[in-house]
Computed example of a mutant assay.
Amino acid sequence: MVVIVLIGPWTVKGLGNMNTREFIPMSAAKSVVATRLTIRRGLGEAEAALYVGLGATKFSSLVRDGRMPRPRIIDGRRIWDVDDIDAAFRALPIEGEDNKDDNPWH
């Protein structure tokens, strides 16, 4: 089992024995998470960002400005519904097409 703990721009990755640690850049950690991401109905913020191909900072910005949906709350934890993300993603403008605004999250 691999345990990933986020610490700033770096990640501590526990490998098997919890006393053994290896420091890896966050970009490498994202690829590790992406390869292990299983399809679920609810996603945390980092997973939701990866789901649409963005970093967490950009995804948060899109949530704040209404282009991505706000999360649902489960016991204080913020969880994004995959169906809501899909609908918001489909409503984003397509390059070269008329930019009509029918995003339901505005």
Results as ranks from 00 to 15, higher is better:
residue 5 V to E: 15
residue 28 A to I: 10
residue 19 N to M: 07
residue 37 L to I: 01
residue 82 V to P: 01
residue 55 G to H: 04
residue 6 L to D: 05
residue 63 V to T: 03
residue 41 R to A: 14
residue 93 P to I: 06
residue 68 M to G: 02
residue 67 R to Q: 14
residue 58 K to E: 04
residue 103 N to M: 10
residue 58 K to F: 02
residue 2 V to C: 00
residue 37 L to D: 04
residue 85 I to G: 00
residue 27 S to V: 14
residue 33 V to S: 04
residue 85 I to F: 01
residue 96 G to S: 14
residue 71 P to Y: 09
residue 40 R to K: 15
residue 73 I to F: 00
residue 26 M to D: 07
residue 77 R to T: 12
residue 5 V to L: 13
residue 78 R to G: 01
residue 99 N to D: 13
residue 91 A to C: 08
residue 102 D to S: 13
residue 98 D to V: 11
residue 8 G to Y: 03
residue 66 G to H: 06
residue 62 L to E: 10
residue 99 N to I: 05
residue 57 T to S: 05
residue 34 A to D: 12
residue 86 D to N: 15
residue 40 R to I: 02
residue 63 V to W: 08
residue 31 S to Q: 14
residue 82 V to S: 06
residue 30 K to G: 00
residue 89 F to K: 06
residue 47 E to I: 02
residue 68 M to F: 05
residue 69 P to F: 13
residue 83 D to P: 01
residue 42 G to P: 00
residue 44 G to A: 11
residue 102 D to Y: 13
residue 106 H to D: 03
residue 102 D to P: 00
residue 41 R to Y: 09
residue 14 G to I: 06
residue 16 G to M: 02
residue 51 Y to W: 07
residue 74 I to C: 05
residue 21 R to A: 12
residue 19 N to K: 09
residue 61 S to N: 05
residue 40 R to N: 09
residue 16 G to F: 02
residue 105 W to I: 08
residue 45 E to L: 14
residue 91 A to T: 10
residue 17 N to E: 14
residue 84 D to G: 04
residue 66 G to L: 14
residue 14 G to C: 08
residue 101 D to Y: 03
residue 32 V to I: 15
residue 28 A to D: 10
residue 29 A to M: 10
residue 41 R to E: 15
residue 26 M to F: 11
residue 37 L to Y: 05
residue 12 V to W: 09
residue 21 R to H: 11
residue 100 K to R: 14
residue 44 G to P: 06
residue 53 G to H: 02
residue 48 A to T: 01
residue 39 I to N: 06
residue 98 D to S: 12
residue 56 A to G: 04
residue 38 T to L: 08
residue 69 P to W: 14
residue 15 L to N: 06
residue 78 R to W: 03
residue 82 V to D: 03
residue 42 G to V: 05
residue 79 I to W: 11
residue 36 R to G: 13
residue 84 D to V: 02
residue 77 R to G: 01
residue 36 R to Q: 13
residue 21 R to C: 08
residue 1 M to Q: 07
residue 97 E to A: 13
residue 77 R to Y: 10
residue 55 G to P: 00
residue 56 A to R: 15
residue 91 A to Y: 09
residue 27 S to W: 10
residue 43 L to M: 15
residue 67 R to W: 13
residue 57 T to V: 12
residue 70 R to V: 01
residue 74 I to D: 04
residue 66 G to T: 09
residue 93 P to G: 11
residue 85 I to N: 00
residue 5 V to W: 04
residue 51 Y to Q: 02
residue 61 S to V: 03
residue 35 T to D: 12
residue 18 M to Y: 10
residue 15 L to K: 07
residue 106 H to L: 02
residue 73 I to P: 00
residue 45 E to R: 13
residue 43 L to Y: 15
residue 81 D to E: 14
residue 74 I to F: 11
residue 103 N to S: 04
residue 63 V to Y: 08
residue 55 G to I: 03
residue 45 E to V: 13
residue 75 D to H: 06
residue 77 R to A: 14
residue 22 E to L: 03
residue 88 A to K: 05
residue 11 T to P: 01
residue 47 E to K: 10
residue 11 T to A: 15
residue 1 M to W: 02
residue 71 P to L: 04
residue 100 K to A: 08
residue 35 T to E: 11
residue 93 P to E: 12
residue 104 P to F: 08
residue 31 S to I: 08
